[in-house]
């Protein structure tokens, strides 16, 4: 509710600004699979490590057009998170400035819907940087993979409680795990899962 109001407010303020096109409703067929790697699992304190966005178009995961950026190592990159995604501070030395990157990301995604697993977390992460910078939240429509999956599974196997973990979903949908815990790999996997779920729609 509050988010909805905020979006209206954002749109009202920015519709005629340089980012106006982001607020237009999208009419194409693409979606963009999005994934962030962060230093933690709390969107209020964690910091961005890398972002990957992979377009999904006409039944294809266009990994070749993907955008994959790493950021400078934040102070809070702790050894805990290193064990999660195996990024060491060294790997991030050549990371880019967050401000530039976010602009590039916005230009890349445009007004296409974004899809992901726990996409709210990714969007919240981006918003935490985006709002102070440009004064609005990521306005794109979001598609939550686990919700989509839950809906399908309820339809296919009503008596089973679906397992919504990322790996479990990928397995159930017969999607091979690309490189887990790299933003690009996860985004590609998410894109593939999205395709599988789409197909199921057409079949049933």
């Amino acid at each position: 509710m509050i988010r909805q109001l905020r979006r209206y407010a954002d749109r009202y303020r920015h519709a005629h600004g340089p980012y106006g096109h982001l607020f237009l409703p999208y009419e194409g067929e693409d979606v963009v699979a999005l994934d962030c790697e962060t230093t933690g699992l709390d969107s209020r304190h964690a910091e961005l490590v890398s972002i990957a966005a992979v377009p999904v178009r006409a039944g294809r995961v266009c990994a070749s057009e993907s955008m994959d950026v790493h950021f400078k190592p934040p102070e809070s990159l702790s050894s805990d998170s290193i064990t999660i995604h195996r990024l060491r501070p060294v790997d991030l030395d050549e990371g880019e400035e967050i401000a530039d990157t976010l602009e590039a990301l916005l230009a890349f995604i445009g007004n296409r819907p974004v899809v992901g697993w726990c996409i709210d977390f990714d969007v919240a992460m981006i918003n935490r940087y985006l709002r102070p910078l440009l004064g609005f939240d990521l306005p794109n429509a979001t598609i939550e993979l686990s919700l989509l999956y839950q809906k399908k599974m309820r339809y296919w196997q009503p008596e089973m409680e679906p397992d919504l973990r990322f790996e479990a979903m990928a397995k159930a949908l017969q999607v091979p795990m690309m490189a887990r815990h790299s933003a690009r790999g996860d985004a590609v996997t998410a894109g593939l899962m999205y395709l599988q779920l789409q197909r199921a729609t057409q079949d049933h």
Binding site: R60, V61, G191, L195, R199
Partner: peptide
């Protein structure tokens, strides 16, 4: 690696 797309076929 960077240039490859992925697609599902039925």
């Amino acid at each position: 690696n960077q240039g490859m797309d992925l697609a599902y076929f039925e």
